[in-house]
Design a protein around this nucleic acid. Structure first.
Length: 381
DNA sequence: TCATCTAACACTTTTGAAACGG
DNA sequence: ACCGTTTCAAAAGTGTTAGATG
């Protein structure tokens, strides 16, 4: 399996008590901090498999290409996928333990950006933070063996600029910079999901930062998307298209060329392009802003009192063993009434139906203990 | 006037059901 | 009846484009 060699920056936590600070990774030279939140008397089980977890970004070279010119991601009212897709290879999980993998996208800074003179620059202060949303991988929960067996793809995640989006897509502001993050939450039965023992790790890759836009600003990004995204094959290039493109820019040198005359089919691209990997060190630190309720026996994670972090919104996750799995059920959500949002799965052996609910609350709840707010984790910013 | 956003469009890949054969 | 493969239409994902919006 190629193009996976890009480890993440990671922060981890478990249970309540903040503890050890990870040192910088001497091999990679990249920064990272890690803390485990396990109480002193807690058995090693609560952290089993968490410290050694490594996450590698798939197609890191492709991400780097975009990153070099400042990645842009289209956001639409209906929701738009990310490209490059967010795919990772995970290692170091306990093959028999169950994990939930989920993503969120947080503000990378507090600026609003503009694109002028062929470059991005800060144009002011960021809009107020939008209630954050999580995207739970549809295979969740699944065994460590399952997650490690193949790439974990979040390609179906969609971005929207619709603040009232009813589909559970991740809401972003145009012309703002964002950082996607991956969370790995341990959810096996011996470590009752949502209990004070809940362990989790957060991973982020600097090269996956992007600026959300409603239409592409930098033509280099457009070209990279067209060259690499199979769905954009129809725009793949030749000189005519390039001429047409140039004609669109305000210039007296190039007359307008009808698109119908510019478009032309081209041969399929060579499969499997760039694949290389590098690695970041794993670190942990306690992170305020994420909490989780204690629900032991029924495999249910419920809401807890709101935190004071206005960046995120409530999130409810419920594992219900008695419900029949469904296949990729669309997420339905009633933001006003906090109706459950259902995720199905076609995974063989999948025992639990996953539910998640959202609200438009200004807080966000996740997988640390409600009793133990000290076990929170926070964005690495 | 300008920057940004929206929706329709043509083109592409993906998906899933039906048909078929062993 | 079952299973695997093929076919094909519908659905969904792309960037482009012109016009709308503030």
């Amino acid at each position: 399996m190629a193009n996976l060699e890009f480890g993440s920056q990671q922060s981890c936590s478990s249970g309540d008590s903040p503890a050890l600070e990870f040192e910088q990774d001497k091999d990679s030279g990249h920064h990272g901090r890690c803390k485990t939140g396990s109480p002193p008397l807690q058995t090693p089980l609560s952290h089993q498999g968490m410290e050694g977890i490594k996450v590698y970004l798939h197609e890191r070279d492709l991400w780097a290409k975009f990153h070099d010119v400042t990645t842009e991601m289209i956001i639409t009212k209906a929701g738009r996928r990310m490209f490059p897709s967010y795919k990772v290879k995970v290692t170091g999980l306990n093959p028999k333990a169950k994990y939930i993998l989920l993503m969120d996208i947080i503000s990378a800074d507090e600026h609003r950006y503009k694109f002028a003179d062929n470059k991005w620059s800060i144009s002011g202060k960021a809009e107020p933070a939008i209630p954050g949303r999580l995207y739970v991988h549809p295979d969740s929960p699944a065994s460590g063996a399952h997650w490690m067996r193949q790439l974990v793809s979040f390609q179906k995640l969609k971005l929207t600029n619709n603040h009232l989006d009813p589909f559970g897509h991740i809401i972003l502001n145009s012309m703002h910079k964002y950082q996607p993050r991956l969370h790995i939450v341990k959810a096996d039965e011996r470590n009752s999901f949502g209990s004070s023992n809940t362990s989790f790790c957060t991973h982020s890759f600097p090269e996956t930062t992007f600026i959300a836009v409603t239409s592409y600003q930098n033509h280099t990004i457009t070209q990279l998307k067209i060259e690499n995204n199979p769905f954009a094959k129809g725009f793949r290039g030749n000189d005519d298209i390039e001429l047409h493109r140039m004609s669109r820019t305000p210039s007296k040198e190039y007359p307008l060329v009808p698109r119908s005359t510019a478009r032309q089919r081209v041969a399929p691209p060579s499969p499997d392009s760039c694949h290389s990997h590098s690695e970041y060190t794993v670190t942990q630190k306690p992170s305020p802003g994420y909490t989780c309720s204690d629900i032991s026996g029924d495999h249910t994670l419920t809401e807890t009192p709101p935190t004071h972090d206005p960046t995120y919104h409530l999130f409810t996750y419920q594992l219900s063993p008695e419900v029949t799995p469904v296949h990729s059920a669309p997420c339905s959500m009633d933001t006003a009434q906090n109706q459950p949002c259902m995720y199905g799965s076609s995974q063989v052996g999948m025992e639990d139906l996953r539910w998640a609910s959202y609200t438009d609350s200004t807080t966000y709840q996740s997988f640390s203990s409600a009793k133990e707010l000290g076990g929170n984790f926070v964005p690495p910013y």
